[in-house]
């Protein structure tokens, strides 16, 4: 084994073990509970309000590169698209990355099919903007005077542009990212947010499958392990003992 990776390997093995165990347990019991996410409720509220006002809602993943956040965003997009299909409300999607376009179309199509509303789907509302995503997004929000604004994914400075553009129309805004540099902006400007791992937990709550539940459980168990290690490590280092640090670096 390479030097300095022993603990990392043990953590990885623990993760895989908990992942499969909790996934299998969920298969048997069908039980999974997570606290209620305010942001999910706000999404529904925004779409409901948009329906009453006869206005569309807007969705974007931000401009960051394709990463794990998109996988959680697809589930949340499906949830929003289902509600839009149910209430006959348009959802305009602004996209920066070309590879996300077919996946987005597929997710939205699936949501409309499940609601039996495929004939009401506006395919032209999935809009690929590439590098001009930001001005195009601001223009779209302003022209359409959206009643709800959702931005979930790898967000950069476009989050603040989107927030302020939609705030002019008193849109209900829900955003989520694990890009820590944008969290202060979205926390200040939105009605509700998903902070980092909450996006993944919300995705599991919406569609609890053994794989998603296993993943959330494994992350939670390791979170607890890490908190425990941090407390023990802090106490040991304070007492002048660096043995845990040495062990972790082995």
């Amino acid at each position: 084994m390479n030097a300095g990776v022993t603990v990392s390997f043990i953590v990885f093995a623990l993760f895989v073990g908990v992942f499969y165990y909790s996934g299998a347990r969920f298969k048997q019991t069908g039980k999974f509970s997570a606290r209620k996410f305010e942001a999910l409720g706000k999404m529904e509220e925004a779409i409901g309000r948009a329906t009453e006002m006869g206005k569309p809602v807007h969705w974007s993943y931000g401009m960051g590169a394709f990463d794990a956040q998109y996988l959680a965003a697809f589930v949340l997009l499906e949830y929003a698209a289902s509600l839009c299909a149910k209430y006959d409300t348009r959802m305009i999607v602004s996209i920066a990355l070309p590879e996300v376009v077919p996946m987005t179309e597929e997710v939205i199509r699936k949501a409309y099919i499940e609601q039996g509303k495929l004939d009401t789907l506006h395919t032209e509302d999935v809009r690929f903007w590439g590098g001009s995503h930001n001005p195009a997004m601001i223009g779209t929000i302003s022209r359409e005077q959206v009643a709800g604004n959702f931005m979930i994914g790898s967000l950069f400075h476009e989050s603040i542009l989107s927030i302020e553009a939609a705030a002019r129309y008193n849109a209900i805004q829900v955003m989520g990212t694990q890009n820590t540099h944008q969290l202060p902006f979205i926390a200040a400007g939105c009605d509700a947010i998903f902070i980092g791992a909450e996006m993944f937990a919300a995705a599991a709550q919406l569609e609890p499958t053994p794989v998603r539940v296993g993943s959330v459980w494994a992350a939670d168990v390791l979170n607890v392990v890490f908190v425990g290690l941090m407390i023990i490590g802090a106490l040991l280092v304070t007492a002048g003992n660096t043995s845990l640090k040495t062990l972790i670096l082995k």
Binding site: F15, F19, A68, I195, V211, G214
Partner: peptide
């Protein structure tokens, strides 16, 4: 806290994608 929590979720997603359990992409 956010970084550690998010990193663990990313590990979970990466594991699902690598093993083919997640095919959303």
């Amino acid at each position: 806290a956010v970084t550690i929590g998010a990193a663990l979720s990313v590990v979970g997603n990466a594991f699902r994608v690598i093993t083919g359990l997640e095919r959303g992409h």
